[in-house]
Design a protein around this nucleic acid. Structure first.
Length: 502
RNA sequence: CGCGGGGUAGAGCAGUUGGUAGCUCGUCAGGCUCAUAACCUGAAGGCCGUUGGUUCGAGUCCAACCCCCGCAACCA
């Protein structure tokens, strides 16, 4: 295997509730990057998964009368179903309850850090809610949410991780060996640790947290979230049991996360890796949150948007398009039914769908769908292709899509400018030429948009008589530049995005 | 209090090193008929948060202030 590797991860979703649209966004960002990298011919390893330990899960399972394992099996499946419904091209799905792959790796990480002296027995001081049987944060406590419950302040033995030892390493890594995208998120972290990072607790007492990975050599303790969940990124690729695989794929090229878990991924995780003597992930891509009609999504407001509902009404690709194109990749974005309808109708049905439809009809009417000549004009310029590449390399998915849409609009303008239906009355050859030029561009679009709306791209390719994109064998250059051969037969035309009335 | 982000046409956003303010959607008016009543062209619409400063000239630099959002460490 001489292909260049590309390792990309999403965060692992916490398996205590049904999938949220925010996680759909994260899956899609990662998926579009993974697909793009495959177009470049790389051997892409795309990891996602679920985080299945912790007191919340333990308690929720009890409430439902299920064992914790039964419960997380169910939830984990829901996440897998969402991923397949969204057409996510992941290559691996890691679960933190996986005792064959994950536990040994997490325990190995622990032992190595302990041997190095980075883990010590210290004290956790904080709040604990007796009713919920859960540790809570000071912020939670002060928020008022626990006013009716019994909250005690406690101090107990916990294993701590010497994050404080790694302050200077983190400071020199962020923005260099570890790129935080967008860069201002990195600044946020640097600012935060400028007076030094504090140690974090790595374990909880087994009697209070019965659902987790045992700490090596101490039965009274169970791993707390950081040492457990963060290691998924290396446990999945064989940190404990497959050195060859591990050496091939680590370090990760991109780790996609939400802004809520930035600190853990930009501080604790790189510190752990440094302690283990491993390289840091090259990029940490931080996306924002989705608001619902301008408001924070919350159950109490009742404005939570389910990714499944969107897919049911608009289809996978329209959902993918909305989340990737209409939500800025690096910032918060808004979802509203009105905007969804607008984006669907305007961009997908009118711009793209109608373009394909009108060109197919022209091709059938003018030369029975049999390609009569080769293109002589490029609507898609090399410059546009370069821009597309650049945005994908920068992970600015929304901008990459925007650059392609310019081409779509240029195609529509080109149809109107050349007027093949009029030309054909006086100069059939010129009319055919314009149509061939358009078909060639549509073929190119089916490649450029593949990372975003893969099904649609393959449908377009089917209509113009081409095989689906096969990223195992693709050569991006020839796929983009080779024209449909003279004599090539197009297939039948079909509406890509039917109008949806609401 | 502190740190980070943001305040630009009705809405959502771009605006590189300072030099006549752009894009998408929406609105209005034309054009076209190949197409999913789709497409194309044009127009209207902005004291670029406020005030002061630097400059021949600032959305773009400096200062102060106002408003919105996030973070404020164990939230899995």
């Amino acid at each position: 295997m001489d292909k260049q590797k590309f390792y990309i991860t999403t965060s692992i979703a916490y398996a205590n509730a049904a999938p949220h649209i925010g996680f759909a966004l994260e899956l899609l960002i990662a998926d579009s990057i993974a697909r793009y990298q495959r177009l470049l011919g790389k051997d892409v390893y795309f990891l996602t998964g679920t985080d299945e330990h912790g007191i919340k899960i333990y308690n929720t399972a009890q409430t439902k009368g299920l064992s914790p394992q039964q419960f997380v099996d169910e939830i984990s499946n829901e996440f897998k179903e969402l991923a397949s419904k969204l057409n996510i091209s992941y290559t691996d799905f890691i679960r933190t309850t996986d005792r064959n792959r994950h536990w040994p790796a997490a325990q190995r990480v622990w032992s190595q850090l302990a041997t190095k002296g980075d883990i010590y027995l210290g004290h956790y001081q904080g709040y604990y809610c007796v009713n919920d049987e859960a540790y809570i944060t000071e912020t939670d406590y002060k928020s008022g949410a626990y006013d009716n419950k019994t909250v005690i302040e406690l101090s107990e033995d916990n294993y701590m991780f010497k994050l404080s030892n790694y302050t200077s390493e983190l400071q020199s890594a962020i923005g260099n060996t570890l790129q935080v995208v967008p860069a201002h998120r990195g600044k946020e972290i640097l600012n935060f640790i400028k007076d030094g990072a504090s140690d974090v607790s790595f374990s909880r007492q087994q009697d209070k947290l019965p659902w987790g990975i045992p700490v090596p050599d101490d039965n009274n303790h169970v791993m707390y979230v950081w040492s457990d969940a963060l290691t998924n990124y290396i446990s999945a690729i064989g940190y404990a049991d497959d050195e060859t695989k591990f050496n091939r794929y680590w370090p990760a090229d991109v780790q996609v996360i939400g802004k809520d878990i930035l600190r853990f991924h930009a501080m604790i995780w790189p510190a752990m890796l440094t302690g283990l003597g491993l390289q840091l992930p090259r990029n940490l891509l931080v996306h924002g949150f989705i608001t619902s009609s301008g408001q924070k999504m919350s159950k109490s407001i009742g404005n939570v948007v389910s990714p499944n509902d969107l897919i049911d009404v608009y289809g996978v690709d329209a959902t993918r398009y909305y989340l990737l194109a209409a939500i800025p990749t690096f910032d918060d974005g808004d979802y509203s039914p009105t905007r969804m309808q607008e984006v669907y109708t305007s961009n997908l049905a009118n711009d793209l769908g109608n373009l394909v439809s009108r060109v197919m009809t022209l091709a059938n009417k003018n030369f029975d769908g049999i390609i009569p000549q080769t293109p002589d004009h490029h609507i898609l310029t090399d410059e546009s292709i370069a821009t597309w590449h650049q945005y994908f390399e920068e992970f600015a998915i929304d901008k990459a899509i925007g650059s392609v849409w310019e081409v779509v609009r240029n195609c529509n303008a080109y149809v109107d400018a050349t007027k093949p239906w009029e030309l054909s009355k006086t100069d059939q050859n010129a009319a055919n030429q314009a149509i061939v030029n358009l078909l060639h561009t549509i073929k190119q679009l089916s490649v450029l948009l593949y990372p975003i709306i893969p099904d649609t791209c393959n449908q377009i390719r089917h209509q113009i008589g081409l095989h689906p994109i096969n990223t195992d064998t693709i050569s991006l250059d020839s796929e983009l530049h080779a024209s449909l051969p003279v004599g090539h037969q197009l297939s039948t035309s079909k509406i890509l995005f039917p109008r949806i009335e609401t």
